[in-house]
Write a protein that binds this DNA or RNA. Structure first.
Lengths: 147, 147
DNA sequence: GCTTGCACCTCCAGTCGCTAGAGGTCCCAT
DNA sequence: ATGGGACCTCTAGCGACTGGAGGTGCAAGC
């Protein structure tokens, strides 16, 4: 009989918190493990590996649906890996878009911050800029703002 | 009597959706406007200005508590604007941190993606890299991962 | 004056990826 | 046998909105 791993063992081995591991299970990312007589989860090495896979993918910024797709892909070694490459490229594209946005933001912010000479709020360019309603507004809203 | 603005007018003028405007009101960012006889919100110019301020601040990446702080600050023109400057600087610092993280992520991703030659999944470096549990893991989890 | 149809109303639930807490049980080392 | 940490389930909460259901108001055209 193989020695089984507790949820704490998995947590220490991967750096993923126990609560998160349970959540992955509830979401169907991680198969339900066996249980001890008392009801504690008893994992096999395969769980550890799969959890590591999930964690790496998450660290690389893949969203949950993408992680699922990659997991499915990894389960079929004879398939073409074009999809994995496409997922990676689209992730890179998303990062580039985010970086462009942040760069623009940073420039605007530092421009505004430099203009503040530390006087009274009445003369502060930061407050003034924010209050200036002649600014054009961006397309979209929330996370996907395009300026 | 001044002509009043509907929520739709505010929305068109600022690019903030009506639902979001109502939400800002519920959160106390925007004061409750008057109402028409039929119960529709009737805004004054001051609401438009305040909403514009909120939107600009949000566009610059300020979180809601920071937006609240800036609004409070803007209401007291005699105060020192050092706080506004500090808020802007800390926002810039946050953006820089995010950019560093994204840069590292992008490098890792493109390294991994380049190694994929488009063969079968079995030989795909993308899948392989993700499955490789010898990778060290990062500190923290969720949004604040540090590698 | 009446109809039409869009804009508006409230309330509730969902998004994403976890995280935290309450209240209870199990397991292992001493 | 016992103590205390690790584990269990269940529920609610985070930020910053978004969307839908089901119903009402308002203004323009006839």
């Amino acid at each position: 009989m193989q020695k089984s791993l507790s949820i704490g063992d998995l947590s220490r081995a991967t750096g993923v918190k126990p609560t998160t591991i349970r959540w992955y299970e509830a979401e169907g990312l991680l198969p339900e493990p066996g249980r001890t007589a008392g009801g504690h989860r008893a994992y096999a090495a395969s769980h550890l590996q799969r959890l590591g896979f999930i964690r790496h993918a998450r660290e690389l910024g893949f969203a949950m649906p993408a992680v699922r797709a990659l997991l499915d892909l990894a389960a079929e070694p004879e398939q073409d890996c074009g999809k994995a490459h496409a997922a990676a490229m689209s992730q890179i594209e998303a990062i580039d878009a985010k970086m462009r946005q942040l760069t623009a933001l940073r420039a605007e912010l530092s421009r505004v911050a430099e203009a503040c000479q530390g006087g009274r709020v009445a003369e502060c360019r930061i407050i003034e800029t924010l209050a200036d309603h002649t600014h054009g507004h961006c397309l979209g809203s929330g996370h996907g703002v395009i300026c």
